[in-house]
Amino acid sequence: MKKWREHTYSFILLVVVLVLWEAIAFNIKMTFILPSPTDILMKLWELKKVLLLEHLPATLCIILIGLGISIILGVGLAISMNSSKIIEKAFYPLIIFSQMIPTIALAPIFILWFGYSIWSKVLVTVLITFFPITINTYDGLRAGSNDLKELLLTMGAKKKDVFLLVNVPSAMPHFFSGLKVAVTLSVIGAAIGEWLGAQAGLGYFSRRMMTQFDGAGVFAPIIVLSAMGIMLFLLVKWVENKTLMWRKSE
């Protein structure tokens, strides 16, 4: 109960915004430019089959493959940078630099390379989600206490033991922080990718509705996208709580 009460004020604000929106939309009477929240909900209901059975799986597929690659790439890079100073010096600045590139501007070239296949979209997703995973995991690996590492050495631990017993567990909370950011970004990445060229997907559908001046049709898939983002986030949070049970005791 207490958990719900905390959200009372934001809930009230949300209702106020929706009511205002409804009122303004009602007065403008131009549904194709500003659909009202009820218009959007009705559209959502009307399109539920197409959206949930055809376009949602397409987008979810891009997100999951993209995140999967990002996790493998990000964790791999973090471990390599942690184990070798040379690799760290070579990669770290470039990884930071890669975030200065406006990914959206670069995306059309991926379409040139991979066509309208799923990989052009996956690549956009990977490009914006691997960064938070890499940097957080890398910081986490370095966060292990030196005193603890030395204590393990006095017990006769090898380098590998120290890594598995100290570095990896210390990195876990950081890894999950990175993953939570990445999940949120992955939804954006997939949607942008689909705008540029696709045959299915929620981002693609939203853009197609725009060309048809169907305002409510633009918003409806965005609601599904947001809901998906929230679900993915909650899923990661749930796994995090299960994995890091000890944090509750602190």
Binding site: D147, L148, L151, L153, T154, L165, P169, W246
Partner: peptide, 18 residues
């Protein structure tokens, strides 16, 4: 290394282990 037992000033227990 590994021949004498060392107990540090702080307990240095791992918070993630029971």
């Amino acid at each position: 290394l590994g021949h004498v037992g060392y107990m540090p000033q702080q307990d240095l227990l791992m918070p993630w282990r029971t």
